[in-house]
Nucleic acid binder design. Sequence first.
RNA 1: GGCGGGGUAGCCAAGUGGUAAGGCCGGGCUCUGCAAAAGCCCCAUGCGACGGUUCGAUUCCGUCCCCCGCCUCCA
Length: 471
Amino acid sequence: MSLQVHNTLTRTREEITPRHGEGQTLSLYTCGPTVYAHAHIGNFRAYVFEDLLQRHLQERGFIVRRVMNLTDVDDKTIRGAHAAGIALADYTRPFKEAFFEDVKTLRLLPAEAYPAATDPEQIARMIAMIAILMEKGNAYQAEDGSVYFRIASFPDYGRLAHVDLENQRSGQRVASDEYDKEAVADFALWKAWVPEDGPVGWESPWGKGRPGWHIECSAMATGLLGETIDIHCGGVDNIFPHHEAEIAQCECAAHGEKPFVRYWMHCAHLMVEGSKMAKSAGNFFTLRDLLQKGWTGREVRYALISVHYRGALNFTIEGLGSARTALGRLDAWRARLYETAGSETAAERPDPATEGFFSALDDDLNISAALAVLFETLRESNRRMDMGNEEKLTPAQARGLLNWLVRVDGVLALEADSSTTIPAEVEELVAARAAARTGKEWKKSDEIRDQIAALGWIVKDTKDGQKLTKA
RNA sequence: GGCGGGGUAGCCAAGUGGUAAGGCCGGGCUCUGCAAAAGCCCCAUGCGACGGUUCGAUUCCGUCCCCCGCCUCCA
């Protein structure tokens, strides 16, 4: 089966294919964070979905060139910098750094590039693109000095969101500075400098100012990936107007190659404990908040990845608990397979049904069906490791499953962190306890267990001896 | 009003015109000095409501109810 995804533009499932002359390469543009605060769990839902997409595309042999932008100039960042009394760059820097730490924590593959809106070369690209739009009559400078995109010049506007502007309830937020626009729906390409911007601003053919949000993605995406991008992702809330605006800008500025994007993919929103995540509701989480409460990156990753991207995800603490338990089972299973495989290097191909994991993902990233294959494989092989007869799982079969798991984890990235080193002190206690147990000195054994626990380790007795895990 | 997403066991969640995957919780058993963990087994005559089509519908059609999101810079 071919890899198919739901394309927001056509509202149908379409097979992903590379473009002619591009070999197996696919370009992927993903809208990144606005660095005015720490990214929250809802932002990461989108990034985890995009990561799953990228990893599965790679598993299927595609070479993915992904770009993710960083919005480091907008109303919020300017306001934040002003409130803190520091320069814009100094205000956004720590949030950028924090974002990259979070990316690692959640095991997101790094993008090929993370262009920031304030990079001089990106500002130059944006100005160049606006100039083309001005030249072609798709943009105009208004009385207020700002440059706007003329939506009337692009009949296709609304095609992605399937909206007819005539039918829209006109926005209630028509700010006074928008009186200068030809049409209410026209959006800013270049925002003229205003006193509130303070030291933030760049010179342009239209005077000092700063770029509009939409032009940022358009310029960076086409600048780094070309006039046509294969896949563009984001959250559903970006469909309109952001992505609609990107299409308008890019297709009007293009030298011919169209469309701007071949496959649009959008993930649904995330809710927390059944309600919309909001600071006022007290259910607003950043990744950092969760780490502080003792949850790990991979537990959060599991919780975020395990629900289909186009369905609303209800993020709950109970769900994190579920994730922890399920991951524990996977860890224990993997460890058991390692033991069974031993030093065997020859691998026997696992049951063909295990390929169902990947074919499920071919079906618009049906993660639920994929995980079902994983857990069915777990149960079946555990059953066979329990057996004592000729059906018992052989080392070669275990090795085969481990090899399959390498591919599975290439997509899920949920394997336990590489074994943490056990302190010598704990090692000694374990050895002492082993001796005590050989002599059936149960009281001493229990005391040592308490000592080990005090050092932050949990010891469990299995038929193969003591097993240590970090508390 | 327009455009979307969704209502499947206590919770999360796939899926199919032919009698309901998987995860968590719960119950049972095995292992076990104890503890903990792990493993195996069990756990929806039911898929928002009501009609219709059909030998048969959760799945198709119709009507309706409810929840969530977007509608100008929030993933």
